[in-house]
């Protein structure tokens, strides 16, 4: 169910694309101030059964930077995000081609012999709706650490640190044994971020992390992302373009499975190079 091919599928029923493509040279042209690459996507194609939803994606995500993926529904941005922690492996018939190299060791995330559980330790994910486990606040954060064999005072310390890093400790220090569901929606989402942070991931994937939150909770998550990028590399999918503009250093615009444009966020939102990008960000379509 997870075949790994180095060449594009010649039998693909999908017509050749005429949309402007982003090549690997885009990331090579990134400003010198950019950090070293954390993940490099090379010639990535992805298929849900016979349907190709990612088409020859080539892009570099830089270390300790926030990269936003934007685009209309169905453009493939969430599909691309989910490739990073092998979420697609859970369903039969899904197929990857190409490579996603995670640095510094250069492991190919989507190679069949790469352990998805290990990848999920290195690359955490936060979903659209808060999804805490039906456990206490403490146990939610401790869960991944226990799987790694962390116990005792070290466990206590790392849970506290993760909650602090997720800006939730002050609100929950005296209610660690309360059920996670007793928290507000915004707090639950920060708990999920703490859970993702607990295992010291190198990257965190955010899939529309604030779409279910009110503006105040949204602002806290955005502030948190700005803090977290000093520790981890962040990839965020959002429908909220103002949010993408606010929180990210780089932005990729996707359309119909293509990465149409990838650039520094400021440039993409003020002077995109592709008309299609401009039409999308100015709301002329989508």
């Amino acid at each position: 169910m997870n075949s790994h091919l180095n060449q594009p599928n010649a039998l693909s029923p999908v017509e050749p694309l005429t949309l402007p493509r982003v090549s690997s040279t885009v990331s090579a042209e990134a400003p010198p101030s950019a950090n070293p690459p954390k993940a490099e996507v090379r010639a990535l194609n992805f298929f849900y059964g016979p349907k190709q939803v990612l088409k020859n994606i080539n892009v570099t995500f830089f270390q300790h930077r926030v990269t936003a993926l934007i685009g209309p529904s169905g453009c493939g941005k969430t599909t691309l995000l989910r490739c990073f922690n092998r979420m697609h492996d859970l369903y039969p018939g899904n197929r990857y081609e190409g490579q996603i190299m995670l640095h510094p060791d250069g492991v190919n995330i989507i190679h069949p012999q790469t352990d998805p559980v290990e990848m999920r330790m290195r690359i955490g994910m936060v979903f659209q709706k808060p999804n805490p486990y039906p456990k206490s606040i403490f146990e939610n954060v401790a869960f991944g650490l226990r799987l790694r064999g962390v116990r005792g005072s070290e466990l206590q310390g790392r849970v506290e640190q993760a909650l602090r890093n997720a800006a939730l400790w002050d609100e929950t220090a005296d209610r660690q044994r309360d059920l996670a569901f007793s928290l507000s929606g915004g707090q639950q989402q920060r708990l999920c971020i703490a859970r993702a942070l607990a295992t010291d991931p190198e990257m965190i994937l955010f899939d529309e992390p604030t779409s279910a939150l009110d503006p105040v909770a949204t602002a806290k998550i955005e502030d948190l992302i700005a803090e977290l990028k000093h520790r981890v590399t962040i990839l965020i999918v959002t429908h909220n373009m103002q949010q993408a503009a606010r929180v990210s250093d780089f932005t990729g615009f996707m359309f119909l499975g293509d990465l149409v444009e990838f650039d520094q966020t400021q440039r993409l939102f003020t002077n995109p190079s592709q008309k299609l990008t401009n039409d999308y960000i100015t709301g002329r379509f989508g």
């Binding site: 003020t270 995109p272 401009n278 100015t282």
Partner: peptide
């Protein structure tokens, strides 16, 4: 409207 792209320019 928080315009972007050609609109903000």
């Amino acid at each position: 409207y928080q315009p972007t792209g050609s609109d903000i320019r």
